[in-house]
Amino acid sequence: EVTIKANLIFANGSTQTAEFKGTFEKATSEAYAYADTLKKDNGEYTVDVADKGYTLNIKFAG
């Protein structure tokens, strides 16, 4: 089991951190699915992958 950390960075400057656990593939998939649910209210997003994929910096356009 691994932990994927998602740093969520919103257009208004606020930030939030979420963690997803499971296999690497499952946790990564859940992180992207979570970002997709936030897209409606926060706009499109870009992802900067860090720490060999264990950290995702997800920035929303607003």
Rank of each mutant, 00 (worst) to 15 (best):
Y54Q: 06
N57P: 00
V47W: 06
E30I: 08
L56E: 00
Q16D: 15
F24C: 04
V49I: 09
D51S: 06
A61T: 14
N12F: 08
D36C: 06
N7F: 14
A18C: 05
A61S: 11
E30R: 07
T46W: 06
E19I: 13
G53H: 03
D41T: 15
K40T: 12
V47I: 09
K59Y: 09
G43T: 02
T37V: 12
K59I: 13
A50Y: 14
V2I: 11
D51L: 04
D36L: 06
D51N: 10
L38I: 07
G13H: 11
N42V: 05
K52T: 10
G62P: 12
A18T: 09
K59L: 08
L56S: 00
T46F: 15
G43V: 02
A61L: 12
K40G: 12
K26F: 14
I4K: 00
E44F: 09
T28Q: 10
N57C: 05
E25R: 03
E30P: 00
N42D: 06
N12C: 08
G22V: 01
T37K: 08
T37A: 12
T55W: 05
T46L: 08
Y34I: 04
V47M: 05
G62H: 11
K5M: 15
N42E: 11
I9D: 05
K21W: 11
A11P: 09
A33Q: 08
A50H: 15
G62W: 10
D36P: 01
K59M: 08
F24M: 14
Y54G: 04
A61R: 11
A6S: 06
T23H: 09
D48K: 08
V49K: 08
G53L: 03
Y32W: 10
Y32P: 00
E44K: 08
S29P: 02
N7D: 03
Y45T: 02
G53S: 04
K39F: 05
D41L: 14
A11E: 09
S29R: 13
Y54S: 04
D48I: 14
I9Q: 10
E1V: 07
T3K: 08
N57E: 07
T17G: 10
A11W: 09
N57H: 11
N42H: 15
T3S: 11
A33V: 07
E1P: 06
T46D: 07
K5H: 13
F10E: 02
K40N: 08
G53Q: 04
E19F: 14
Q16I: 09
A27M: 02
E25T: 09
G43K: 02
T46G: 05
G43H: 02
K26N: 15
D41G: 10
A6K: 00
N7Y: 13
F24R: 06
V47R: 02
K39Y: 06
F10N: 02
G43A: 03
D48Q: 07
L38D: 01
T46K: 14
A11D: 10
A6P: 00
E30V: 06
K39R: 12
Y32M: 12
D51K: 04
V49P: 07
D41R: 13
K40I: 11
A31C: 05
A31K: 00
Q16A: 14
G62Q: 09
I4G: 00
I4R: 01
D48N: 13
T46R: 09
L8R: 00
E19P: 04
A50T: 07
G53M: 04
Y54D: 03
N7L: 15
V47P: 02
K59T: 13
S14D: 08
Y54E: 04
F60I: 01
A35I: 10
T17E: 09
A31N: 01
I4D: 00
D51I: 02
I9R: 10
N12D: 11
T17C: 05
A50G: 10
T15G: 07
N12P: 04
K40A: 10
F24A: 07
L8H: 02
L8W: 05
K59C: 05
K52R: 10
E19D: 08
D41S: 15
Y32Q: 04
E1K: 04
E19Q: 11
G53I: 02
E25V: 07
I4A: 01
A33C: 04
T46M: 11
G43Q: 03
N42A: 13
A27H: 00
S29I: 10
F24Y: 12
Q16H: 15
T28D: 01
I58T: 01
A35W: 02
V49Q: 08
L8G: 01
N7C: 05
D48H: 11
E1D: 09
A31E: 00
A18V: 14
I58Y: 07
Y32I: 13
A33S: 11
E44G: 09
K5A: 09
A33K: 15
F20E: 00
Y34L: 11
V2H: 09
T37P: 02
T3H: 08
G62N: 12
T3L: 11
L38E: 03
F20H: 02
N12H: 11
K59E: 07
A50C: 05
N42Q: 11
A31G: 03
A6E: 03
E44T: 13
K52A: 14
T55Y: 04
K39T: 07
K21D: 06
Y32C: 03
E25L: 06
E30W: 09
E30A: 14
A61V: 09
Y32E: 03
Y32T: 05
A50S: 13
I58H: 00
N57I: 15
V2Q: 07
V2D: 05
A61I: 07
A33M: 13
E19L: 14
I58R: 00
N42T: 04
A61N: 14
G22I: 01
I58W: 02
E19R: 09
S14T: 12
V2Y: 09
D36T: 07
F60T: 00
K39N: 03
A33P: 00
E19G: 08
L38V: 04
D36F: 04
A50K: 12
A50W: 10
F10P: 01
E1Q: 08
G43P: 01
F24H: 09
E44N: 15
V49N: 05
D51E: 11
K52S: 15
N7S: 06
N7Q: 10
A61P: 11
K59A: 08
I9A: 09
V49D: 04
N7R: 13
I9F: 13
I58S: 00
I58V: 09
L38M: 15
N42M: 13
V2W: 06
Q16Y: 11
T15I: 14
Y34V: 05
G13F: 08
D51C: 05
G13T: 07
T23W: 06
K26T: 15
Y34K: 04
D41A: 15
A6R: 00
A61Q: 11
D36N: 13
G13L: 13
F10D: 02
V2S: 07
S14V: 11
L56M: 07
N57R: 07
V2E: 14
D41C: 06
T55Q: 06
G43C: 03
V2T: 10
A61H: 15
A35F: 13
Y54C: 04
T28R: 10
L56T: 01
F24L: 11
D51G: 06
A6F: 03
L56K: 01
G13S: 09
E1N: 06
T37I: 14
V2M: 08
V2L: 07
G53W: 03
S29Q: 14
G62L: 09
F24E: 04
Y32D: 01
L56A: 01
E30Y: 11
E44L: 15
T55H: 04
L38S: 02
E1G: 08
A6C: 04
A35N: 01
K21C: 05
E19A: 09
L56P: 00
N42G: 06
Y32L: 15
F20G: 00
T17I: 13
D41F: 10
L8I: 15
F60D: 00
T15Q: 13
T46S: 12
K52I: 08
K5D: 03
D48L: 12
A27D: 00
F60H: 01
A50M: 10
N12L: 06
G22R: 01
K26L: 15
T17S: 10
V47Q: 02
F24V: 10
A50P: 04
A50I: 11
F20M: 02
D51M: 06
T55N: 05
E44I: 11
F60A: 00
G13E: 08
A11S: 09
Y32F: 14
D41V: 15
E44S: 15
T28N: 07
E44R: 09
D48M: 12
A27F: 00
A31V: 13
Y34W: 09
I58G: 00
T28G: 03
A18F: 12
F10T: 03
N12G: 08
G13P: 01
S14I: 13
T28H: 09
I9N: 09
S29T: 12
F20Q: 01
L38Y: 14
A27T: 03
E30M: 14
T37W: 11
V49C: 04
K26M: 15
T46V: 12
Q16R: 15
T55R: 05
